[in-house]
């Protein structure tokens, strides 16, 4: 546990963003059971209004917008962490039922439930002898 990097990891963007804010990679847990794929992402500072989940074809994009974190009339004396948006992209297999994805945000943790599509059953492909 002590070996884990505790600072947020900043994204290295391939393209520049329009908003001049840093983006970070949220830490995630992904696990599955036989009907469903679960994803948990640590995104402190986001709520259900500022988090965006997009699944296009098989690319799942999670973005979270965070306001700059300044406190009115307060001066910063000491700083260890930076505030910025979150973005992370995953490639998921086709077996997700796109219409049944459930997303909730609680205490800065995003939880995604992605049910697996029923029609997808493992298919065995017979190889014909040449």
């Amino acid at each position: 546990m002590a070996e884990q990097e505790m600072q947020k990891t900043q994204n290295v963007p391939a393209t520049e963003r329009i908003r001049n804010v840093k983006t970070f990679t949220p830490r995630v847990d992904i696990y599955e059971n036989k009907d469903c794929l679960f994803l948990l992402a640590d995104m402190p500072g986001v709520d259900e209004k500022t988090v965006d989940i997009e699944l296009e074809k098989n690319v799942l994009t999670i973005t979270g917008r965070v306001d700059d974190g300044r406190i009115n009339d307060a001066t910063m004396m000491y700083s260890e962490y930076e505030i910025g948006d979150y973005e992370r992209v995953f490639t998921v297999s086709d077996e997700i039922d796109h219409d049944k994805i459930v997303a909730t945000v609680k205490n800065g943790v995003l939880r995604l439930e992605m049910p697996k599509a029923e029609k997808v059953r493992p298919k065995k492909i017979a190889i014909k002898a040449a």
Binding site: M6, Q7, K8, L40, D42, M43, P44, G45, G69, I71, D73, A74, T75, M76, M77, Y78, S79, E80, Y81, K106, N107, G108, V109
Partner: peptide, 22 residues
């Protein structure tokens, strides 16, 4: 070192913020 903190000052009081999700 966890959680990382930011410390602010306002009207003689300190405000400590930390990101501790979940």
């Amino acid at each position: 070192d966890y959680p990382a903190v930011n410390i602010w000052e306002k009207n003689g009081a300190s405000i400590v913020t930390a990101e501790v999700p979940g």
